[in-house]
Design a binder for these strands. Sequence first.
RNA 1: GCCGGGGUGGCGGAACUGGUCAGACGCGCCCGACUUAAAAUCGGGUGCCUUCGGGCAUGCGGGUUCGAGUCCCGCCCCCGGCACCA
Length: 792
Amino acid sequence: MDKYEPTQIEPKWQRVWADARAFNVPNPEPGAVDEKRWYQLEMLPYPSAKSLHMGHVFNYTMGDVVTHYHRRNGARVLRPMGWDAFGLPAENAAIREGGHPRDITEESIVLIREQMQRLGWAIDWDREVSSHEPTFYKWTQWLFLRFFERGLAYRRAAPVNWCPNDQTVIANEYVVDGHCERCGALIELRNMTQWFFKTTAYADELREYELPPGGEWPERTKTIQRNWIGRSEGAEILFRVEELDIDLPVFTTRPDTLFGATFFVVAPEHDFVEAYASEEAKEYAKHAGARRAEDRAAETVKTGVFTGHHATNPVNGERLPIWVADYVLMDYGTGAIMAVPAHDERDNEFAQTFDLSVRTVIDDDGRLVNSAQFDGEEAEVAKASIVAWLRNEGRGAPAISYRLRDWSFSRQRYWGAPIPIIYCDDCGVVPVPDEDLPVLLPDVDDYLPKGKAPLASNEEWLHVDCPKCGGPATREADTMDTFVDSSWYFIRYVDPTNDEAPFGREVVDYWMPVSQYIGGIDHSTGHLLYSRFFVKALNDMGMLGFREPFARLYHQGWITMGGTKMSKTRGNLVGPDDLVDEYGADAVRTYILFMGPGDKDKEWSDAGIEGIVRFLRRLWRIVGEVAERAPEGRAAGPLTRTTHATIARVSDDIGRRFQFHTPVSALMELLHALAEDTSAPDARFAAETIVSLIQPYAPHIAEELWQRLGHERLWEQPWPVADESLLERSTFELVVQVNGKVRDRFIVETGLSDDELVERAKASERVQAHIDGAQIRKTVVVPDKLVNIVVG
RNA sequence: GCCGGGGUGGCGGAACUGGUCAGACGCGCCCGACUUAAAAUCGGGUGCCUUCGGGCAUGCGGGUUCGAGUCCCGCCCCCGGCACCA
């Protein structure tokens, strides 16, 4: 047989698949529901570099194996691909390289698409979408308007994260340790008028996972999201400022310590300061409020100033001095706290610093003291009874507070979807009418970031007539965060050419939720949370019939280089091209999955790829031999059982365990067994099975060998099924232990009774030597496995 | 501090619900065959120690069990999330 030449066979089969439209999956006829379907999705790439890296190769190959597996198990499988084309990564790449972001992005898309096709991934290219195309962002804008109508997208002035390097606001979710997640610059706090999505309206729903049957999310991801949302149960309590005749609400998780409050603190940004505080306090607040939370937290000594007023504790009428201090944060709770230095570390530090009084109200046994009628109650009980008392007095109520903040999504950058809003002097904030969508992203002379939206400098585009009154008006010049695009791209795939709506409900409800999503865990508090928010909101709008976008979620581990994740900014990218040239796509695909468990980080090294290449060459040679010499038919032989066992193992690993490296081992073992005798009566069956099972990993060689074995179109052959009856053995190796130590092993028939097995075990000479003369205390039998004789 | 994940040969890793002297499969290394030679290929060996009887080994120390990498308790270390969030 000729030599294995991947460079010959791979392009050939890629053409065959394309011509046969092998992986294009039309939507079902209306009304189809009971058909088996599978929506396989991996996070779409940013086309910001001109090449994929091995991390992508890993991720998409895993998705490819799952795709083939479900296709061949009879499911209608949707497996799309697209481009997260808008946004900072692409725009920054364009700035670096010079040129228009659109040109740079589209060049990258062409190159990456070619790489994907060279790797032979089973993608339905008819469904390709790119977030920078007007046909896509028209609907991003349309969806924004639906959120806007419901108050789920709104505009307000707020302190936001400003990246001085990227010259734009970025979301809380992408500030890491006070630095920009993209470029690493130190984030500044700026007070700006920005657009927000009201993610907090779904805080509770986002903490719960309304997954369909069979759905499953990793525990660690749920934990990350729950930590991020940060729900605290407590109470809101009103403190009266008698001399001003106003109420100041506080949020506390410890209403049981209400009698221990000895002072009161408001955040520097609190309205109370500006309205009523002393000049000294105002001066303090001006400086303190301008500082970032991280800097405030880093302060070792607490600072603050007395405002000159007092608040009355509703439970005992005590007058507490109101201070302003920067350890209280405006954007959590109510921006004001009751300070209980005896039972709160921070309040205690403050009390020590300013010599304020401390009163213990919970004793060592966890019971209330110094708390009037509540004395003696356990703290947990007292929480409820004090809140009940307050509620009765009209001075408090149970309350819940979240750490989650609304998602700030307006960006002062060029390369994004324009926000379809018009500002009119008379009518105010006016949404662009649906029929005027899309608001096209115009060309501008200078799209470099300058701290204000580049679109604002395009006067011709900026000035429009108000859609309401026809008077002079201006467009919103900020663009949308790229994460808005990725919050719904996976829905567009199911209906990518719809020009009446972003998607049709029936077809969305057929395909979705996504059966299996694969992507990085770094998106846990960003993209994955935003997407869930979108789907829940769209469900409430009646646009789709489910409440979670992704039924099953899997996080692949990183492919690292020098210990860090491969990424463009770190400059440690290894692409697939050289490896594909040298070893072929099949070897690259199989190797990257064989490297180890899918969810673990792996340091990149091509040192082991030779092992896979040897395996594929051996496969080529041995299957070739079988095709020439092995008898036709399916007569049973020594290989039959091993072959069926391998089918069961591989299917279980891929289908149930989602484990992709062990099937390769199993197939290597079966190949070794087959190589023993390529003219055995069941050699042909074993060879066909190996080829069939390796197809998701190495589809090109599999297709070629399948043809040489006299068959056609392996990609649409049913996945092999293990014959249970052939898996059963008539004999097995009985392990005999004495006191837990293996003393003998020999072959016996299956199905013997426990007593018979014990008799056989005792009959063994080697066992005899260990039990002779001793008292048998107990025998343990694991049917068809082992006998343990306990002597003593 | 709170929450989650993890720790097995020189390396990647296997052992799925406690059950075949733990270490499959691959890499690397060693030996051999073929070759003038090399590559490729094929075959064999490869946890540690050993007085060659055996002993010790799945981060450490206990425990449960006839039997523990797997279960329980207590530590240690690594990775990730949250943290002046009242």
